[in-house]
Write a protein that binds this DNA or RNA. Structure first.
Lengths: 353, 353
DNA sequence: AGTGTGCTTGGAAGCGCTTCCATAAGATAT
DNA sequence: ATATCTTATGGAAGCGCTTCCAAGCACACT
């Protein structure tokens, strides 16, 4: 069906080796021969057979990304970075979107299939221990993003420092009664973001008030959902009439913050006058909703993952690297700060809150 | 490096043909032999070499999606459908995200590479004429989504009918002065959505008032952007003090609608009391912002594209099919209708407007 | 015993490349 | 003119699989 290098060789009156060398820019081909072959290539509109190349050259020029799919916008943004860099580096990207836990194993197995991909990026989930050894054995490069394992490269965000900055910001605005709404306490982000909260308060000589801590249970998305934010906020508001009530809230994720906003409005309270809010992630909705939040450099993380993977493909014996990104405080209206940092019309405006 | 079927054959004391047959569930293998081989497969933790399989079997079991990347949420949702179905059908999905026009050709060429992919999905952009013939020649299946070409399968949305429903809805709510904010007039969506607007008005005996038509220029994203919505809305408001001013607006896209909302709030007007709004797309932000809009069944469109591609891969001589999806009216607060259709907490609540 | 039938099986051929080795043809040195 | 080195080339081998053909075997039927 297709035109092969044999056709090219016959047509150009040369051998297949020469044709191959022309196609791959091998130096030892005379200019005339090269020109002759390339003209035939054009004339027959030859297309190389990707899998034959991959089989013969023993590399796939393809990487896979195993990523929880579109549960929130964090991943969209990360994926953008991954895709951008893959393209720049001219590798194919196979997308494995995880919707439920079973799929993780399936995709890992699939990636493991010899020669299928040259490397794997694994996002935001616990890398199953049972597969660590398999990957090591086969020597298939792995880069972890937003998750960690000592034997693999990993790119994470500094949740502790980020959370501390968020709470510091509320403190600097004069707040002393700062509550926290968190996700499920068994998750790393929840633990680390609480730790940042704790450190900020302690550094200012404030003791953590257990009454001010609101954790979600081990529910859908580990509590990092709009619903959980809504429900936890209700509980915060119930306690409001007690002796000491919080004047500000640090919410562990933007998506929860959105739910919290709903609950606050229902109660007829104003943000930030009655309750100031700072959250975490900087998903797209946060910009729209005017949430002050800690931005994770998502695009950069995705992009870096691809670069690292490529590096590791070249030199598989590199020892594991780690990179941590520091979240950046994005000031919008929900915190009540007058110092607006972001100035673009789309973020400066943005509806309500 | 890896375990091959030769290793399996030697180890199990059978021939390579038999091994291959076991692996592929070929019927003519005795149960004992099969069991023996499979146990060896497990013991050596054999992994097939994807590209060798693909080379030998002459099919890639892979499809590619060429898609404008994350310019708006339409594509995220479509991609979700594509990914979900690909997984169900066990084909690999290569993602080609288009950021600028040059990449289209590059990706088409890449997909064309013999044996690389078994089919291509092409989204929301004009399929370049120069490539039509090439795909036909090679016989590589193509499915078009949100765009059209007579020689290929295509899945589109009925913009005209959708726009008509949107405007009908405003009419039913009592509005007679209905303006329209549109994207760049050279694009199909802009043309078709205007056509629906026109038909609705005419069916109610209302003449189209040129003063009520606001088109963006050929700017970024063909005017389907928040900025353009903001700017056009400003122009609408400037004209507001004239003799007859619109009481409602049909906006050609949610994203423009969001900009329009910004402008309306700046002017101190209320939605829907002073100005009712209906737009098009139902991106995620629309739900949050409480926009009444025409929902496109994005997930379904993506999913169907994969199904069709698979069908066409089986039977390449199918004549081109077309499917059109009818957008669905999603009533939220921006239109002022009291008949709430959507009741889920996340959509019923949702901030402002 | 002879012939046919259906089920299993082994392994060669072939998918379209890359790569290596041998060789031919010049170019340079002796 | 001969030896030596370079440079350019042809094509076999091999990547790991699928598939097809030939053949072995057991059994049944004349």
């Amino acid at each position: 069906m297709g035109v092969t290098i044999y056709d090219l060789a016959r047509e150009a009156g040369v051998g297949i080796g020469t044709v191959s060398r022309c196609l791959n820019n091998h130096p030892s081909v005379s200019p005339e021969t090269r020109a002759k072959v390339l003209s035939v290539v054009k004339r027959l509109s030859y297309q190389p057979h990707a899998y034959a190349q991959r089989l013969a050259s023993r590399q796939a020029n393809t990487i896979s990304a195993i990523i929880p799919f579109f549960t929130n916008h964090f991943f969209v943004e990360v994926l953008r970075g991954v895709q951008g860099k893959s393209q720049e580096l001219e590798v194919d990207l196979i997308l494995y979107g995880v919707h439920n836990a079973d799929q993780v194993e399936y995709y890992l197995k699939r990636s493991l299939s010899r020669g299928h991909v040259d490397g794997v990026m694994f996002f935001s989930m616990k890398f199953p221990d049972s597969y660590v050894e398999k990957f090591q054995q086969i020597g298939l490069p792995v880069v972890l993003v937003d998750t960690h394992h000592p034997l693999f490269d990993s790119i994470t965000v500094r949740n502790v420092d980020g959370a501390k900055s968020a709470v510091d910001h509320l403190y600097d605005l004069g707040h002393r009664q700062i509550a926290m709404i968190n996700g499920y306490s068994g998750t790393r982000p929840a633990k680390e973001r609480f730790e940042g909260y704790r450190r900020s308060l302690e550094s200012h000589g404030i003791a953590v008030n257990p009454e001010f801590l609101f954790y979600s249970g081990k529910e859908k998305l580990d509590g990092f959902s709009r619903e959980s934010g809504y429900n936890l906020m209700k509980r915060v508001l119930e306690k409001r009439n007690d002796s000491s009530s919080p004047s500000a809230l640090f919410v562990a994720s933007d998506i929860q913050s959105l739910g919290a906003v709903d609950a606050i409005r229902e109660a007829g309270l104003r943000i930030p006058e009655d309750l100031a809010l700072v959250s975490f992630d900087d998903i797209e909705l946060a910009r729209h909703a005017g949430l002050t939040t800690m931005r994770q450099p998502m695009y950069e993380m995705g992009s870096l993952a691809v670069s690292w993977l490529k590096a590791r493909m070249k030199d598989p014996d590199l020892s594991p690297r780690e990179e941590t990104f520091l979240p950046e405080l994005i000031i919008r209206r929900s915190c009540g700060s007058t110092a607006r940092v972001t100035q673009s019309p789309a973020s400066g405006r943005g509806a309500m809150v």
